[in-house]
Design a protein around this nucleic acid. Structure first.
Lengths: 235, 235
DNA sequence: TAGTGGTCTAGACCACTAT
DNA sequence: TAGTGGTCTAGACCACTAG
């Protein structure tokens, strides 16, 4: 598959095994180490290096005295997703209406959250977001302009997270806070609910490596939205 | 430290390095591989096996051509905590008042959530929980009696999670759902808020390995509680 | 140039599992 | 008993970094 002259041997073995067991059910046997030694004409330590990587990755598990097998997939904690991805996952059609998209000077709260200095330029993007045509939430996102040059000029994307992804800024870390509250009159009007209806407020600070890429405050209609979170110690 | 005759060499090297760099700042150099080969009189592959484990663990990072260094600690996603631990972390005094603690037959919802059959015996534990003396939430926990023999007879612990911990059932995985709502009249009375006040409802299904150890529904006073969640892909 | 980690070899003995 | 993974040796050459 790959130019064999250039690929490292342990990488060749690793990718061979990955392809071989890809799609196999958990518990299926992987080739034995000595079998791979024969097939690739390499030392056993080289095969072990390849297999070690797949074990660490969670694809394989070793059982001493028995062999190496396809591991049961580990549970994965919640992915960090944006609205579009999340609604799509729920089988709903995500739509957004931009109410505001402009350059602003960061106030004290936003500046601190974005790790900037008060008065620095930030992008403020306010959207009314619908699911299957009905208002779901109102989102105010604040972005670091320095990380997103030309963002406002390029025409707003549908999905902020796709857009961050394309720039290599997909969040790898998020700090969320969630509270229950009543809608303000303005929020109620936009969300098409009675004034003072119950809402779920969701704030997020999303980082990619050590860069704060997004700070947002979203208010969800409580009658339409339940937040789901999976927590776990494996990834 | 450990009986040297019995410990595996790579474990000896690993623990030596762990002790040596324990408490060092990120970026501090670890001993070089060849230095450890000399010190322990082992092969380099053995040293590499030891160091590999520490790298996978996140304690060390290797920089080719430069050396091995103490890694910057990875961010850790939210721990799965119970009420007592969480309030303590926030600097509040956690107290609980048991309103109900009895054996019941599982209804359809609870049975499914606990991976049991309808009518199986479950423990139902209802508590009014205070923080610094003021009502914070009302929690209904359902536990699998088979996993917790004698639980009701032993007198209720303060912290369910400590109690699970002691039985080796500390949750390693949790599925939470969060909604905003209004309190029922009964909830409002217990929580000492006006009827129909805004509340945050939090449901949890907590597992230890593949066993469902806790299913709970908690209603928090919205005026006193903000839920915090950290999401990330390293652990 | 000296030192580092990255890769690789060609063996070895062990404990354990399955037949 | 044959096969498996776990551990370990005593070297080797490479690319890279730093002084």
């Amino acid at each position: 598959m790959a130019p064999p002259g250039r690929a490292l041997k342990h990488v060749q073995v690793r990718e061979y095994v990955r392809t071989l067991v890809g799609g196999s059910s958990p518990g299926s046997p992987a080739p034995s180490e000595r079998e791979l030694v024969q097939r690739f004409g390499v030392a056993r330590m080289t095969v072990r290096q390849a297999m070690d990587a797949l074990v660490v990755e969670g694809l394989l598990e070793r059982i001493p005295g028995r062999g190496t097998f396809v591991a049961r997939p580990r549970r994965t904690a919640s992915k960090i997703t944006g609205y579009t991805e999340e609604m799509t996952r729920r089988g709903l059609l995500a739509e957004s209406q931009t109410l505001l998209a402009r350059r602003e000077q960061a106030g004290p709260g936003v500046a601190r959250a974005l790790s900037l200095t008060e008065g620095d330029a930030v992008i403020h993007w306010r959207r009314l977001r619908r699911a299957d045509g009905v208002p779901m939430c109102l989102e105010d996102a604040y972005l670091n302009e320095v990380l997103l040059p030309g963002f406002l000029q390029q025409g707003m994307p549908t999905s902020l997270y796709d857009s961050l992804d394309a720039r290599g800024l997909r969040p790898t870390w998020a700090e969320d806070s969630i509270t229950a509250d009543k809608a303000t009159a303005e929020e109620a009007g936009l969300l098409e609910v009675e004034p003072f209806s119950v809402v779920l407020r969701h704030s997020r600070r999303a980082l990619c490596d050590d860069k704060v890429v997004e700070v947002s405050r979203t208010v969800y209609r409580a009658d339409r939205f339940t937040l789901w979170v999976q927590l776990g110690q494996d990834c």
